[in-house]
Every structure is written in structure tokens, then in C-alpha cells.
Design a binder for these strands. Structure first.
Lengths: 158, 158
DNA sequence: TTAAATGCAAATCGTTTGCATCTGT
DNA sequence: ACAGATGCAAACGATTTGCATTTAA
């Protein structure tokens, strides 16, 4: 369900719908992982082969402006790309594993309380909240511990 | 006090100290605002005119690897630059105003509790925590409200 | 002395732009 | 019909790289 979220939002806002936009939107909507502009282009081209990267970036810009998608950095795990995801009701946290590259999402009422606190005590009107944590997932955490200790001992090099 | 933090850390780790590194480090250490690589280069060149941008980036990379500085995006308020700051004891939150570009720092025990919760329930070993909020500071918030309403009414254009 | 750091110039990567053409409404 | 969206190619800004040379320890 809620498959056409983005599309419907655009229609209701009277935004012009081109086949290119439909393609990009459909890909973002169905995506199972966080996509960067490049993969977005590749995937959307299967639906609309003429699609150009400029159009992808322009569509991303449009969706960002309308606050229908969120832009993530995911701790710059692989270069300086940006990643996109459909904006959801409550903000969530992204955990990025330096070991295996895994991205895990996390939600917590504490996060909402923290944001409330900021709104209240700093008088800041939050529009976008991005909490990203870099570190090691349970699997990589143990594997990683060994290497780390070596490094700390002397100055690199075993 | 604690003026030589970074320098001392490097010395104690047996890292080779060049005049270029001293210059970059001294600039980061004394900085009153968040600096990007470009401004860092400009400022450090006053101390070490021969300094090249490659060296600045390499030094930043070194300090990041040693976890002596943190890298920020500051909601990409002006392009895709990165900003740097000396790593402090407790993590803090950055509030970036879309209106005037102001950056405000914010700390809260709730943030630490949230991180603890993540460590505990997700088993994730946090190395870097970056919480950035984009929105409007108190001043810009009121100024901004008017414009926003117009936009929402029809599809852009007055 | 020598492994590591530097400057320089060129390359790379993600993203943006100007402009002639096309298309949704 | 025409404002707005597109493709194309070139430009862009931030960052990285290879390599010959210099330097800290």
C-alpha cells in the first residue's frame, strides 16, 4: 500500500508530471536501499531510457524542495555521494558500519524528545533532522577490536 | 588553556611534525568558527606560505583518522564543502539556519542517553556521531513564516 | 640515512549550468 | 500556445592522485 505517495503529492500540488519524473519517482518509491543519484539514474533509465543525469538531479532538487524526500550522507562511507529516501512520518537515525558498509535504521522516542527540547529551548524551527552514526555493527565490532589495539600500541605498522 | 591539545596528541603518538602540519593544526585549534578546507588553506598559508591544498587535505585526513577532529556537513548550507572542528569531550548538535546561515551548537543529556540506547539495543559501537538540524533560527523563523504560506497556496509563483 | 611528507599539476568525482529543443496541461 | 521540463555538452567546485623532490627524526 501507499505505493503512489510521491506521485499523488506531486499531482495534488499541481506539479507537471513528465515520464522522466514518473520514472525517477517510481524508483525512489520502490527502492529497497538508499540510492544515490548515479544508481537512481541507472535504475530509472530502465523505465525511461532517454533519461539524463541532469534531469535526475533536477528532480531530486524538486523533491527535496517539496520536502518529499530526505538527503543523507551516510557518513560518506563511499565517496561524497548523497543518498535519498522517501520522507517518512517520524525521523529515523542511520547507523553506518565502517566495517562492512551496512546501513541500519533506528527509531527512538528519545530522538523525538531531543528534537522537542531543541525546538523549545533554542527556539529553533526544525525542518530537517539528520542523525548519522558511524561505527561498527555487532558483527564487525568484535572483528575490529583486534586490529584497533595494534594500531594504538605504537605508531602504526606492526 | 588547552591550547596545544592537537599538537600534543600528535607528539605523543609519535607523528612526524612538519611546519605545514603545525600551521594547519594551529589554525584549526584557534578557529572561532567552523572552517572548510579552503579557508583552512588560506589561513594556514599566512603561517606557512608554501602550504599546498593537497597537504591540507592530507592533514585533515590524518586528524580524522586519529579522531582528533570531526567532520561536519552543516546541512550543505553553502555547497558541498566539509567543515572541521576539534573533537570535544561530549558530542554536540549543530543547528543550521536556512535563513541566515547561522550555526548554533547545542548540547543535551538526552543526546547522550539516545546514544547509549543505540549502543545498548542495537549493539552498535559508535565511533562518530553527527546530528545536524536544518531549519530556522528564532529571528528567521518569524520572518520566514510569511513567505512559506504563499508558496503552499498554489504551485509557486505569486 | 631513509621512510615519510610535500608541492605541483593533472585527474577524478559528484553535481550544476546554458542553451536549443520538446512536451504537459 | 507557452511556461516549464528535457537532453546534451561543457563547466564547476571540492577533493584526490602520481611523481619527483624535500625533510624530520
Amino acid at each position: 500500500m501507499q505505493r503512489r505517495q510521491l506521485l499523488d503529492e506531486l499531482v495534488s500540488k499541481g506539479i507537471r508530471l513528465t515520464s522522466q519524473r514518473r520514472a525517477v519517482i517510481s524508483v525512489i518509491q520502490e527502492a529497497k536501499s538508499h540510492l544515490d543519484a548515479g544508481s537512481l539514474l541507472d535504475l530509472a533509465r530502465r523505465l525511461e531510457p532517454s533519461l539524463d543525469r541532469a534531469t535526475v538531479y533536477r528532480t531530486i532538487g524538486l523533491l527535496k524542495k517539496l520536502r518529499l524526500i530526505d538527503e543523507l550522507d551516510l557518513m560518506h562511507l563511499e565517496g561524497e555521494k548523497h543518498y535519498y529516501e522517501v520522507r517518512t512520518e517520524g525521523d529515523h537515525i542511520h547507523l553506518a558500519c565502517f566495517g562492512c558498509g551496512m546501513i541500519q535504521e533506528f527509531t527512538s522516542p528519545l530522538f523525538d524528545r531531543l528534537k522537542e527540547e531543541i525546538t523549545r529551548t533554542a527556539g529553533f524551527e526544525i525542518r530537517v533532522a539528520r542523525l548519522e552514526l558511524g561505527g561498527f555493527c555487532p558483527k564487525c565490532s568484535s572483528r575490529h577490536r583486534g586490529e584497533e589495539e595494534e594500531k594504538t600500541k605504537t605508531s602504526v605498522k606492526h
